[in-house]
Amino acid sequence: MSDLDYLPVTVIGGYLGAGKTTLVNYLLRNANGLRLAVLVNEFGELAIDKDLIETEEDGLISISGGCVCCSFGGDLIAALENLSQMQPRPDHILIESSGVAKPSAIFDSITLLKGFAADGVVVLVDTETIRENANDKYMGDTILAQITQADILLLNKCDLVDPQYISENANWLTRQNPKARLVKTKHSVAAPEVVLESFLGRKKTTEPHQLADQMASVNLIPTTSLDATNLARTLAEGEFGLVRAKGFVTDISGDKMLIQIVGRRWAVTTADPKFKDGVVCLGLKDQMKPIDLKSLA
């Protein structure tokens, strides 16, 4: 599906220490041929793992596998424009927002840009410190805002606390943001297709990632035309254990439609008729309801 003409952009948010940089490095390691471009708010010495870096010049880090990384320092729009003009063009842009940023502000800005598509907001939460941080005198409201702006919440560092506490935190997060889908992670290891839409429906990475067991996917292949908007809304809002979905259907109007779902956010747009019908649905294995899902198509 890489010949869609827009360039998808995903915003990765979360407070300092939540694991954003670790997640970015994990995705770069597992890009598996997808050319990722990473925009970071600041270049620290630890931004990108040393062994991933091939060259570094003029503020642009080239990473093995055709990925790149640069800092946007305050001029996000210019940095995005620059990336979109690179040859070959990146397949997907990730923005690692600063620890104090409100990710929805970045997401909203992307929606204004021609040639880009705002994929979604993925926010990491440090299970160990989140409750304390959410009560912080200064940063508490900023951290809560980050949580409420997420489409997908990654409850990270689950290896550091006991299961009881994880589940308490999961419940608490769901109360803070009932519209987000929650995925538990350790060491920021989230299946790439959870974080980036572009991985959905691609062949599995060669390196079997540790969380493959956690996720399941279902392919919906409609045999007839259907109400695309209705399907998208049902997938996004229903309780099927979905985290993301993407694919094409033939609408009752006869038009080919692209359906995109991230968390509970959904979008339906007209697409080229050349695409084959089929929607890949990604969800958590223990919550996924394949039979209910299949009944929708």
Binding site: Y15, L16, G99, V100, K102, M139, T142
Partner: peptide, 11 residues
């Protein structure tokens, strides 16, 4: 609503 932080206390 309250305003924005540009820099975190830790930074």
């Amino acid at each position: 609503p309250n305003g924005l932080w540009y820099t975190a206390p830790e930074q």
